[in-house]
Amino acid sequence: MSFRTRWRKFVNVFMLSLTGLCALVTVSILFFILGYLLWYGGKSLNWAFFTHLPTPVGETGGGMANAIVGSGKLLLLASLVGVPVGILGGVYLAEFGGQTFSFVVRYTTDLLNGVPSIVMGIFAYTIIVLPMHHFSALAGGLALGVMMIPIAVRTTEESLRSVPGTLREGALALGTSKWKTVATVVMPAAMRGIVTGVMLTLARVAGETAPLLFTAFSNRFWSSGWNQPIASLPVMIYTYAIAPYDDWHRQAWAAGLVLLALVLVANIGARLLVSRGISFGKA
């Protein structure tokens, strides 16, 4: 073997192993994250975390019950905005849309998807917080809801399009009107994909902090109603992590573990739903 051939073989093996190393490094990051959160978060996670309010500064103990409920309320509000608009918009694009207008809608949706989350916070601030003069759960829910729209639209459109045209034709040939065809034949067939999309986008906004900082703000107590500042898990993690108290750091780890667990479970669940395949019919 000439030197040149040996050199080429060496470069081949070396560079290919390097690419393998790249993949290994990236994958191991997730396990690092999981490991650290399980270790630090698991140590400080206890029952009080889920049932108690935050304690005043200097007192140890307490929990984040209000933030857990708060996150739930914010997600509910966000879904009220994001899910109907997202799904109906997706139905329009897949079933009713014309050429030009659909293109504009699709383009705008992509644009909206690229808007930084902090800018979405400013948007909600200017249209709700400024006129009302105080932070509120409504403003936070709106910011998150608008963020949900793009992914919901896209996944709905894609899963509707993956339903075979023969199903539509069959229903239409029986004399069913178009909306009934879409609502009772096409939508159920695509339901799995649509639910997956909604779950993924919910998981995404559940971890968003930036748009909540100056819309929902935070709250160290229970927030009654929808028109007050409200605590949420991501914002609590942020404020507790940058605070100078060790006890707050422990709580931040615990909250991080809970949040990550929720997000990962939703993601894995959504993918499992997809990988079982889209079933046609009323399964």
């Binding site: 109906l88 918009g89 329009y92 009713f96 849309g97 705008t108 948007f123 200017t126 009107s177 178009k178």
Partner: peptide
């Protein structure tokens, strides 16, 4: 009467509201 135009209109409104929100976002900023 069969509801097709109504369904068309409702979904159209949803799609249009995406554009409205984006335009409002730029306008507010």
């Amino acid at each position: 009467r069969r509801g097709d135009e109504v369904a068309h209109l409702i979904t159209l409104l949803a799609a249009a509201s995406i554009i409205v929100v984006t335009v409002m976002l730029v306008y507010q900023l």
